[in-house]
Design a protein around this nucleic acid. Structure first.
Lengths: 295, 295
DNA sequence: CATTCTTACGTACTGCGTAAGAATG
DNA sequence: CATTCTTACGCAGTACGTAAGAATG
C-alpha cells in the first residue's frame, strides 16, 4: 500500500469516476483502475461498486475515504513542516485572470519555480466566473482573480487594487473633457464575455449612473478589446498601465469620467486545507510579487 | 515518499542505529541506508547527523518522528478497520515461553496462518525474563508467558493457569507420601536457568516453607530437565500434562507435596498501540486456543 | 454507440541484496 | 581493527502507457 493508491482512491471517490480521477492526477484511466484494483486486493475489500457504469463507493470504501483524506492531509502537513520549500512536489493548478497574466504572472511563475523547483504548474487563464467554479469543485488549487471567492474554507490574500479606465481611439470622435455615464451610454461599448467580471462591473457602473448603455459588444480578452477599440469600433475599459504604449502612440485615448471607474480588488485564494501544501504559501508569494496598488 | 521509508526512518530513529533498524525490518543495512537517504533527498533535509559513527537524529529528524509515528499508526488502524483480517500483513514477532511452545503453540500458529495469511511469524522461544525484556524494548510485538508484564501501555489477556508438580525418577529413592518443602530440601533440584521464572518460583516455594534447598542444578528446557530427572539426577518441577507418557511408563513419578505447587498464571501481552495491528487481535485468538485451566 | 471501466502486453524504472569502500572510535 | 554507514552494480519485480476488450445506459 502506498500514498499514490490512497491519493488515487481519494480523488476517484471524491470525483465519483475513475476517468475524472485520471485526469485530475495526470494519469491514464487504466493506471487509475489498476491502482484501485491493487488497493482492493491488498485490503481484501471491494471499494467500488462495479455493477453500475459509474464507480460508486461501497460502505468499506466510504470508511476508507476518511482514512485516505486524513493520511493525505497529514502527508501534506509533514512535507510542509519538515521538508524545505524544495521538498514540496506535485502539480499546482493555478487559475489566473487575464489582468494578472499580462502583468506580473511571469515573475510569479519564475519565483515559484525557484522556490519550489519540484512543483509543476498547470496554468489556466479564464474568466473569473469559470475560475471560481473550477476552484470550488476542486480542479484548481488556487486562483488569482478579482473579487472575493465565496465559502469559508478559503484563505483569500488581498493582492491590491487595479485602476481601470475608459478608452477609445482618438479618431472615434468622442467628446473631450470629463464624461458621465449618461455621456458614454450612447456609444458602443466593448467588454469581455457577458458572464465576466469585466462585463458585470461595466453594467454596474452604468446602473449607478442610472442609465443603461445601448450596446455592449463582447470579446474574449483585453488584447482583443484593445484592438477593437483602436480600430474605432467602440469604447472599452482597460487598465491604462497595460496600454501605455497604445496611449502614447495615439492608438487609444484615455477618457476621463465622472464618477471614475472604481478600482478593482484582486485576491489570491487557496483552499484552507489544500492537498497541495505549497498553495497557501504561494498566495503569500503572490502578494509579494504583485505590483498592484496596495493599502 | 512512501510508507516503507517512513517506517524505516521510524525504527532507525527509535533504535538509534541503521543496522538495528535493518535487523528489525528484515532488510540489509544498505537498503535501510538508501531508504533514509532517499527520504532526506525528497524532503531536502538532513534527518540524521552523520558526523558521529552512530546515527543521531537532527532537529528536523525529531520533527519527522512525530509525523512518521502518527502516519504508521493511522495506517495500522486503517488496515485494521477497513481491511479484512486477510489484509494485515507484515511480520509478527511472537515470543513464547517453553510451556506454550510444547502445548498449544502449533495450533495457534496454524490458526494465525489461516486468519492472517499475509502475516509472517517470527517465533522466539526464550526465558520469560528475556521475552519481557525484548518486548519492552520493542523487538517483540507480543509475548505468551507466565506472570504479568509491567507497564501501562500493554494489553494483558489471561490465558489460564497451569498446574506444575514435583517429579523424580521412581528409582531415585524419594520417600513416598506427601512431602513438605523441608522433606524435599535435601534432594538435588533441577530447574531452568537461574534467572528463569521457573527457578525463581521454586526458590519462592522453598522460602515459603522456611527452608532453602541445598542444591539447584539448572538446564535450559523442560525437556532436558525431564531427561535429567528420569536419569535419576534430581527432582524437578514440570507440568504433569506434558509428561503423562513418562509418568505412565514409569520414567518419572509424581511427588505429592504440601503445600502443592501453586498454579502458574499465563498471559498474552501486546503493546496497546502496536504497529502490527494483528498483535492485539492475536492475543484474543491465543486466549481462545489456550487449553490452560481458566476461571 | 459513446462512455466507462478492465485486461493484456511491452517497456522503463525503482528498489533490493551483494559486495566493496570509507569513516569513526 | 571492528563496527557503522555509504556507494556501485546487476537483477528482479513493479508501475506505467498503449491498445484492445467488455459492459452499461
Amino acid at each position: 500500500m502506498n500514498f499514490r493508491q490512497l491519493e488515487t482512491f481519494y480523488w476517484a471517490s471524491k470525483l465519483g469516476s475513475l476517468s475524472a480521477a485520471a485526469e485530475r492526477l495526470n494519469a491514464t484511466q487504466s493506471t487509475v483502475s489498476m491502482r484501485i484494483i491493487e488497493l482492493e486486493r491488498e485490503l481484501g475489500v471491494e471499494l467500488f461498486d462495479r455493477s453500475q457504469r459509474a464507480a460508486r463507493t461501497t460502505a468499506k470504501g466510504r470508511e476508507l475515504i476518511y482514512y485516505a483524506e486524513k493520511m493525505l492531509r497529514l502527508l501534506a502537513e509533514m512535507e510542509e513542516r519538515v521538508g524545505g520549500t524544495g521538498a514540496t512536489q506535485g502539480v499546482l493548478r493555478l487559475g489566473v485572470a487575464e489582468m494578472i497574466s499580462i502583468t506580473w504572472l511571469p515573475r510569479l511563475v519564475q519565483v515559484i519555480h525557484e522556490k519550489y523547483p519540484r512543483v509543476t504548474l498547470e496554468l489556466d487563464e479564464a474568466l473569473t466566473k469559470d475560475l471560481v467554479e473550477r476552484f470550488t469543485n476542486g480542479s484548481l488549487d488556487m486562483i488569482l482573480a478579482p473579487g472575493k471567492v465565496p465559502g469559508y474554507s478559503v484563505t483569500p490574500v488581498p493582492l491590491g487594487r487595479v485602476q481601470f479606465a475608459w478608452m477609445a481611439s482618438p479618431s472615434f470622435g468622442m467628446p473631450s473633457g470629463v464624461l458621465t455615464p449618461r455621456d458614454l451610454q450612447a456609444w458602443p461599448v466593448i467588454a469581455l464575455s457577458r458572464e465576466s467580471y469585466h462585463h458585470t462591473s461595466i453594467e454596474e457602473w452604468f446602473r449607478l449612473g442610472n442609465v443603461h448603455c445601448r450596446r455592449i459588444d463582447t470579446c474574449k480578452s483585453f488584447g482583443v478589446a484593445s484592438s477593437l477599440a483602436s480600430a474605432g469600433l467602440g469604447v472599452t475599459l482597460l487598465p491604462p498601465r497595460c496600454y501605455k504604449d497604445e496611449i502614447k502612440t495615439g492608438k487609444l485615448r484615455l477618457i476621463e469620467t465622472d464618477p471614475p471607474f472604481p478600482p478593482v480588488e484582486f485576491a489570491a485564494t487557496a483552499a484552507v486545507e489544500s492537498m497541495q501544501p505549497a498553495a497557501k504559501q504561494i498566495t503569500l508569494l503572490a502578494r509579494e510579487i504583485s505590483d498592484f496598488e496596495k493599502d
